[in-house]
Design a protein around this nucleic acid. Structure first.
Lengths: 205, 205
DNA sequence: ATCTGAAGACATCAACTGATGACATCGCGC
DNA sequence: GCGCGATGTCATCAGTTGATGTCTTCAGAT
């Protein structure tokens, strides 16, 4: 949450020091970073529609007008958010326990990014949702499908999508507040259960 | 879509005839029914926020002002929607294949109700979400937990929530448009995969 | 036939949202 | 030290939304 999101732009890695020679207080790169971070939290937390630019600005400590200035608008800010989320993680095979643990721990610290919502939520084909869905496919579905295909499993794409959807549902539910024990469970105790569940997307042998 | 929603109120099953003695054309009960039905579709289809009362009225062929008159507002209409969804189905044990088939087919015809979204989506503790979550627990989590408890499985509640979350994710994803093959799959071919997946919420023996 | 109350349609309000443009202020290069 | 562009602030606009109040219209009882 307080951690800097790498990727995106090389500027502004941690707190302050965008460039070796420019510790300027009045820092556009820093404002952009603050906006993206606040937006990522809020979008993940309340969805795209329910998040207002004023809220984002308030949480970021930055004037909302700068959203328009730096990103072009709320939508583009969202896209930048997804791009960051996309940039700082690697495609993961959900059936590999180490990868799964990594994802689980990451989503336990800061909640799932906005992508998961957009993927699972019905909606029009806005570029917003499209970007988020592309992300999900690259990250989760394709690795799984490739694995299934390599294993000569039938319907690899369908199985991969099934597992990814289940995973998204669980991750979202965990941070939604709808399921008490699921939300309270530690990643370590959840991991084996989750792994077994997802592994069942492969035909039982 | 054009199909009548069973349950709800005994009035207005198909076209016109709310009460034996009152085939009045100017029918408040019918207007209510039309509003609920339109709202159910739209809420499930675009979420609560993105659905406007004007849209609901337009689809129902009823003046939007009547939403306020009959339900008190958009929120109460949503609650009525959830109540209907709750009323016309029975608690289902997701591991029982017949129950699962029933749910799957039902959600394949008309999409999932608004409850699934509200349950899986993070958000404030509005009564809207609370009602939806209560629904999900009564319907899906509790039957599963009872089964697990009877089977002496450890952590029955956690396992039940896990399975329910996965199920919700899959159902939502199916109608979201994010996953092509998952959405296109026939219930019959999806059923065995889904069953195996959910069955893995029980410890492998 | 008429009267009355329910049912529906219309106009409109107040609140909110995203976006824009004008203005102030700071920092860097000269 | 100073001017100019970059950065940030403020006020405000236009569009939309949910909600309300009032007026019209119809059905049923008398």
């Amino acid at each position: 949450m307080t951690e800097a999101a790498p990727g995106t732009d090389p500027t502004t890695p941690g707190g302050d020091r965008p460039e070796p020679g420019a510790p300027r207080r009045r820092d556009a790169a820093r404002s952009r970073e603050l906006l993206i971070r606040a937006a990522m939290e809020l979008f993940a937390d309340r969805g795209f529609e329910r998040t207002t630019t004023r809220e984002i600005g308030e949480r970021a400590g930055v004037d909302p007008a700068l959203i328009a200035r730096y990103f072009g608008g709320k939508t583009q800010l969202y896209l930048a958010t997804v791009r960051v989320e996309l940039g700082d993680s690697v495609p993961a095979d959900l059936l590999e326990e180490d990868r799964l643990r990594g994802l689980l721990e990451r989503f336990s610290q800061r909640g799932p990014g906005p992508s998961f919502q957009a993927a699972v939520l019905p909606g029009d084909r806005t570029e917003v949702q499209q970007a988020a869905r592309t992300y999900l496919h690259e990250r989760l579905v394709e690795p799984l499908r490739d694995r299934f295909a390599a294993e000569q499993v039938d319907r690899p794409q369908l199985r991969a999508e099934l597992a990814a959807a289940a995973f998204a549902g669980i991750i979202l539910a965990r941070s939604s507040g709808a399921f008490g024990e699921l939300a309270a469970a530690e990643p370590e105790e959840l991991l084996p259960l989750l792994h077994d569940l997802l592994a069942a997307s492969r035909p039982t042998r």
